[in-house]
């Protein structure tokens, strides 16, 4: 992938943030009293998980 050290730093930083964001949103999905907000938090958590997977797959495809 011709990754630079900066590229790798960016990837690691984003994966760290996404992992945290995913856990936080999952937690909110269980704490909201309002059903609409519970669903929204659950969707946000799912999207962060997908974003994490996409970025990890990119990293995994590099030597």
């Amino acid at each position: 992938c011709n990754l630079s050290t900066k590229d790798l730093t960016v990837i690691e930083d984003q994966l760290t943030h996404l992992a945290t964001a995913c856990r936080v949103a999952q937690g909110y999905a269980t704490q909201f009293q309002d059903a609409q907000l519970r669903g929204l938090a659950s969707t946000v958590a799912q999207h962060h998980r997908q974003q994490y997977d996409a970025l990890f797959q990119f990293l995994n495809g590099c030597q």
Binding site: C1, N2, L3, S4, K6, D7, T9, V10, I11, D13, Q14, F58
Partner: peptide
């Protein structure tokens, strides 16, 4: 951070 990326795929 995206402005630090040098790889188009990233």
């Amino acid at each position: 951070e995206v402005v630090e990326g040098s790889q188009s795929g990233l």
